[in-house]
């Protein structure tokens, strides 16, 4: 199952197929017939079974499914955190299926951002230092203005000197988003980003993610933002452009522009 291809911004009124129409952009992440099994013999579990899916730039996709359906494994394999047993994974234009550790490290620095359910900020560092951390790890010259802007973009311009324990859960998650986006990665992987938040903080975080996808269109040179998000929450999933459903390691459905109720109903039928 694959999304429709995304295109760079075309001149107004130009129909697709016109000779001047920009060529389709390659997916930010693509899984081709990926399989992943854990254990061996009788205890073997197939977490992903022949999964093919592409996540184009400028799109936000939610991944849903019952417990044990393979959502997290899909995210881990797509992000190069786990190895696929079969198939191929293309990330930011590179085949990472058998990529060595240093290549994956380099990709994590330049092309990927992560947002976790439990924020995972470094407790010893201030919000500003947390946001600057990926740049410092990548050895690029620290652009303090970019760091401050990233914090301001998530509404925490005045909280730069606070340590994580001095911030609320929602604020910590916003710092984590600023940290994930400061290097302008091609793909943002989010693992239950609203799972530990109250509904108001969750709404703020989802609005923030929506803004990032809508506003980073690729016109400033950086690739349009792609977000892949694993969630249990139909409200969070409904904020995405599309929702894909997994069951027993297989992709079974896709809903585009669905409401929270529709997402919840579909999930309920899968869980039956």
């Amino acid at each position: 199952m694959t999304f429709a291809s995304a295109h760079a911004a075309a001149p107004q009124g130009m129909p697709p197929g016109h000779p001047g129409y920009p060529p389709p952009m390659p997916p930010a992440v693509e899984l081709r017939s990926v399989a992943r099994r854990y254990g061996s013999g009788d205890t073997s579990v197939t977490a992903l079974d022949d999964v093919s899916i592409a996540f184009p730039p400028g799109t936000w996709t939610a991944v849903m499914g019952p417990s044990g359906s393979g959502k997290s494994t899909l995210l881990h394999c797509a992000a190069g955190l786990d190895r696929a047993d079969e198939g191929q994974i293309i990330l930011a234009g590179r085949d990472i299926t058998r990529a060595p550790e240093h290549v994956l490290t380099e990709l994590r620095r330049r092309s990927l951002g992560f947002v976790f359910q439990n924020f995972n900020l470094v407790g010893a560092l201030t919000a500003e230092q947390n946001v600057a951390l990926p740049m410092r790890l990548a050895g690029v010259r620290l652009d303090r203005r970019a760091v401050k802007r990233a914090l301001a973009d998530v509404g925490l311009g005045d909280r730069g000197n606070h340590r994580p324990r001095e911030l609320s859960g929602g604020q910590q998650q916003r710092v984590a988003i600023a940290r994930a986006l400061v290097t302008r990665p091609a793909v943002l992987f989010a693992d239950e980003p609203t799972g530990a938040l109250d509904s108001r903080s969750a709404r703020t975080v989802l609005e923030l993610m929506r803004t990032v996808v809508d506003e980073r269109t690729g016109q400033d040179g950086a690739a349009p933002q792609c977000i892949v998000m694993v969630t249990h929450d139909p409200v969070a999933a409904a904020a995405a452009d599309a929702v894909v459903f997994l069951r027993d390691g297989r992709l079974v459905d896709r809903l585009a522009g669905a409401s929270a109720r529709q997402v919840a109903d579909r999930l309920a039928t899968l869980e039956d």
């Binding site: 240093h102 994590r108 995972n120 470094v122 990926p134 790890l137």
Partner: peptide, 12 residues
Amino acid sequence: DLALLRTLGASR
């Protein structure tokens, strides 16, 4: 914590 640093791009 160390795994997080690796996720954020820290090399070995």
